[in-house]
Simulated assay, not measured.
Amino acid sequence: MIQEFLQSTLPLDSSVSLRRSDTDPDKEMARAHSEAFEIVSDDGETVGFVKAWEDDPSFRGYVHFDSEGNVIDWKVFKDRLQS
């Protein structure tokens, strides 16, 4: 579900794709479900990284890094509860 969320919200060029990373989840985000992804070019080169989390479907976000680990973007999404 996190990957679909990223594909719909993260502004990525069509020449790159997300590949799930084999990293350990952040201990600081133990309550939330988190996943890490590499942003890979069509040539197979890693051009960035994304760490994303979801506490529940109404509260989630991501941090987008360049290939050197510098933060490019950081977004948090909180859906309004509908009555």
Rank of each mutant, 00 (worst) to 15 (best):
V47A: 07
G61C: 05
W74L: 11
S14C: 01
S58K: 03
M29F: 01
K27L: 13
F37R: 03
D13E: 15
E4G: 01
L12K: 11
Q82V: 08
D56W: 10
V16S: 04
S14E: 12
E35N: 00
P25I: 08
L81W: 05
A32N: 14
K75F: 08
V71R: 06
S67E: 13
H64S: 01
D24V: 08
E68Y: 00
M1C: 10
V76C: 09
I72C: 00
D42L: 12
L10D: 09
S34A: 01
D66L: 04
D56A: 02
F65S: 02
V71F: 05
D55S: 12
P25W: 11
M1W: 04
E35R: 05
S41K: 11
G44W: 07
V16W: 03
A32H: 05
E35F: 06
E38S: 11
E68N: 03
V50Q: 10
E68I: 00
T9Q: 04
L12S: 10
F65V: 05
D73K: 04
R60I: 01
S14L: 10
E28K: 05
R20S: 14
R20A: 15
T23Q: 06
P25G: 15
S15D: 14
R80Q: 13
L18G: 01
D73S: 00
I72V: 12
F65G: 00
K27C: 09
V47S: 04
S41D: 14
F37N: 11
G69Q: 12
A30H: 09
S14G: 07
R19Q: 15
V63E: 15
V50C: 12
H64M: 11
G69D: 13
N70W: 07
D42V: 13
W74Y: 10
T9S: 03
K27W: 09
V47Q: 02
N70F: 06
V50W: 06
S14Y: 07
F59C: 05
E28P: 04
W53L: 03
A52S: 05
A32V: 12
D42P: 04
H64Q: 03
F49M: 08
V16M: 10
K51E: 13
G48P: 04
H33N: 10
S8N: 12
D79S: 07
S34H: 01
I2N: 02
R31D: 15
Q7E: 15
V47N: 00
V63F: 06
I72Q: 01
S21L: 10
R20N: 13
D13A: 02
K75E: 14
W74N: 14
A30V: 05
M1F: 04
S41G: 11
H33T: 15
W53K: 01
S41P: 05
V50D: 07
A30N: 11
S14F: 01
H64V: 05
M29I: 09
E28M: 14
Q3L: 04
H64T: 04
G44K: 09
K75I: 12
I72A: 00
H64C: 11
T9V: 03
K78T: 13
D73R: 08
D56V: 01
S41T: 15
Q82R: 15
R80E: 15
R60W: 15
Q7C: 06
Y62E: 02
D55M: 09
L6C: 15
D43T: 15
Q82H: 14
L6R: 05
E4N: 02
D55Y: 13
G44E: 14
D22M: 11
